[in-house]
Design a protein around this nucleic acid. Structure first.
Lengths: 198, 198
DNA sequence: CCCTCATGTGAATTTAAATTCACATTATAT
DNA sequence: ATATAATGTGAATTTAAATTCACATGAGGG
């Protein structure tokens, strides 16, 4: 076998991205080193040149997920000024991410996260609370501009927003894609927006 | 060691209940046969007299969870007639179950559910959609009695309700109990009820 | 051009848990 | 009271995957 040699920083990225993909493609399998290696095109043992352990790869996946989620926030912030469009866009993008990157919900509902020592749960908790904080900011800005009712508790709104996305992800993932997530959005979004708009 | 011999139906219940407990007490450990056996007071091999496999135990746990959740619905239905009280009670009971039976969220976010063959996901999907259907009924009855706005889509309301509970469970579980679930309810419930009440 | 270190490999090694099995015991049906 | 079927046990057995290791190779700095 003639496998090209590549520098560690490149390999690390490949490995993490592949791991996330593999995870998404095998909804019913534990994530094995062998499978990641195969996807990258390396021998299993080679991965250990770039990560101390399987666990370290899992942590890196969490980082990748954080990046993907937060980039959505930045994008919608820049794409428009008004809260309605921002939130609506964020919702759509979030769903799109979950739909295309099967690996993300898979990771959120996995033993990698729940079945191991605290560390990863904490990491994910911070990712989510940080994400919520960003939504709170968007709501606040919307209130400042008079687009959202003043008597709405921004945290309540943010959590409610999250409450649209998360159960949808759960049901969609659980039903293997049969759950109609678009219909869900079509019903839930207007309901949500009617409730908080000025 | 002198261990009492008990009939299979009794043992099965013991085993499943113990499994759920053990699962809740070790948030960071895979559920091992050895640990279940220890809790019941049997040798690991004895469990195989009552269940074909570890997997069968997992399925039985799902059944137990279904029972616990659905009994709440029955209770609140009988405890009161008006939709507000029913839904509010259901919310509180649901949270109480999640809080006391750590094993339930642990199961929902576990590889037992997500990392194995379809069957269990489907089972859980059915449990949840069934639960949602019950909530839809409660909402409909509330509408019939004029307590809830006619223009509210019952399914939307039910999902929104679910959207209060589920993220709370996630965050609470993820934060190892640090997330203030009572505060969450105190904020989210009025918000929800204001939105749908007549 | 060569040296060396980073990268890659296949073959052990480690580990850990589920499951099976041959044998023991006791509950209960007759 | 006895037979037998159900229940319980500790000691194998199976399995399966992560990790390590001794050795190979090629990229890039000097």
């Amino acid at each position: 076998m003639t496998t090209e040699k590549l520098p560690t920083d490149v390999r690390r990225e490949q490995i993490v991205a592949s791991a996330l993909q593999v995870m998404g493609e095998n909804p019913d399998k534990h994530l094995h080193i062998k499978d990641i290696a195969q996807r990258v095109g390396l021998a299993p043992s080679a991965l250990y040149r770039h990560f101390r352990s399987r666990d370290a790869i899992m942590s890196a996946i969490l980082e990748l997920i954080r990046t993907k989620l937060y980039s959505n926030i930045e994008t919608v912030r820049q794409a428009s000024e008004d809260a309605e469009t921002r939130l609506r866009e964020l919702l759509e993008r979030h769903i799109r991410v979950i739909r295309s990157e099967h690996g993300i919900p898979r990771m959120i509902f996995s033993d990698e996260l729940w079945g191991q020592k605290q560390e990863k749960r904490q990491k994910m908790f911070r990712i989510i609370t940080g994400y919520l904080a960003e939504i709170v900011d968007i709501v606040r800005e919307g209130q400042a501009k008079g687009e959202i009712r003043q008597d709405v508790n921004p945290m309540a709104a943010a959590r409610m927003f999250f409450g649209i996305v998360q159960p949808a992800a759960l049901l969609w993932h659980m039903s293997e894609g049969r759950f109609d997530i678009d219909e869900h959005l079509a019903i839930a979004w207007p309901f949500f927006w009617q409730t908080i708009k000025s």
